[in-house]
């Protein structure tokens, strides 16, 4: 788990670097990207559970986002692979349970279970990949600003910004503590329940003390209980066109079976 968190933190670092780029996608208003991403998620989830091929045209959006936003595919795919076990675990039973033949590719009969399993994997890749790309091309702070402007309760937005700000600081605290334990523990064993309890308790005490220091620092700087988020957001014609255009594409993909159409046309030509 430690390794998992560390890789996650390294991932945030690389996301921050990507979010600092300046590309046509980065220059879009964060609200346009957020709304388009949410529309894609609804479109993905609205397909029936045996749909695989009809979902694929939706991949155009994340592909274009990554291409125009200069986001390399490797780290995003690696992150998806790390997050995939639960989706695979729940989906892997489908081929075993649902053995009704639903499609045929020449002599090979595909059962409903395999179709729905493939559908779960495609959904997983599309929705989570797009969410990661949203943050990688926008930055976490800007996504929070967009959420605030779209009506998320202010207390929650402030909370998000605080969590993000202190994620690294407290993780460093924890890492130092784990290293100190490792240097003193025979054979570098993991702490037992008792020791872990006091380690976590110590970490908690430090956290509470830190919260008091932060509060004092905020009061010193004139904090009066009201948060003022200063991040000018301007919604231009480009942003609206971006969101409307992509939502139109999603609606088209939802209404028309494009791969089927393409395959049929190709078959007629050949």
């Amino acid at each position: 788990m430690t390794a998992r968190i560390e890789s996650a933190l390294a991932h945030i670092g690389s996301i921050e670097d990507l979010a600092a780029l300046d590309t046509p996608i980065h220059r879009l208003d964060p609200r346009a990207k957020l709304v388009t991403t949410l529309a894609l998620l609804v479109a993905v989830a609205s397909f029936g559970r045996y749909e695989v091929t009809r979902l694929l045209p939706l991949a155009l959006y994340p592909i274009v986002l990554a291409a125009l936003g200069d986001v390399p595919a490797g780290p995003i795919l690696a992150r998806l692979a790390l997050a995939s076990p639960f989706a695979i675990l729940v989906g892997i039973f489908n081929p075993l349970i649902d053995r009704a033949p639903l499609a045929a590719l020449g002599p090979v009969v595909v059962t409903g279970g395999w179709l729905s399993f493939a559908s779960i994997l495609v959904r997983f890749g599309l929705s989570l990949g797009t969410a990661l790309l949203l943050v990688a091309t926008t930055g976490f702070d800007a996504v929070c600003a967009a959420l605030a402007r779209l009506g998320l309760p202010r207390a929650l937005v402030i909370q998000l910004l605080f969590v993000y700000r202190y994620l690294f600081v407290l993780s460093d605290d924890a890492a130092r503590m784990i290293r100190a334990h490792g240097l003193r523990a025979p054979l570098g064993r993991r702490p037992g329940l008792r020791v872990a309890g006091s380690m976590l308790g110590q970490l908690l005490l430090r956290t509470l003390a830190r919260a008091q220091r932060i509060h004092a620092a905020m009061l010193c700087r004139g904090f009066d209980g009201v948060f003022r988020l200063r991040r000018p957001l301007r919604l231009g014609a480009r942003d609206v066109a971006f969101a409307v255009g992509w939502c139109g594409w999603f609606a088209l993909v939802r209404a028309v079976d494009l791969p089927q159409l393409l395959g049929a046309v190709l078959g007629r030509l050949g």
Binding site: F162, V163, I214
Partner: peptide
Amino acid sequence: MGVLGAFVFAAQMVTFA
């Protein structure tokens, strides 16, 4: 509240047998 949210992440680094 903010720092305790970050604590939840940091606490998950401390694994025990």
